[in-house]
């Protein structure tokens, strides 16, 4: 409670040390919004493109995580 009273948004850091990986989703969303806003010829299907790109980034990061896990724990862990 003391921590909550002392907390000032945008000045103090959030206590996300145990769930920091959850920040990947809004990170991917922000990148997708800004990138697609520049790249798409028309904004008709903008949000659909944003959602697809967000999913691609998240799935790509999960895939890379699995790959690195396999390399370190399975191949070099033998």
């Amino acid at each position: 409670m003391t921590w909550l009273l002392a907390y000032t948004p945008f000045v103090d850091p959030l206590d996300l040390h145990d769930v920091w990986w959850l920040t990947l989703a809004p990170l991917a969303l922000g990148i997708s919004i800004a990138y697609k806003a520049v790249r798409v010829p028309t904004l008709e299907e903008f949000w659909k493109g944003v959602l697809v790109m967000t999913a691609q980034i998240i799935m790509g990061m999960i895939g890379l995580g699995v790959l690195v896990y396999l390399v370190i724990e399975v191949f070099f862990g033998l």
Binding site: P26, L27, G30, I31, S32, I33, A34, Y35, K36, A37, V38, L43, F46
Partner: peptide
């Protein structure tokens, strides 16, 4: 939309 994405990040 660019403002939203960049400033959001």
């Amino acid at each position: 939309l660019i403002f939203l994405g960049v400033m959001g990040l």
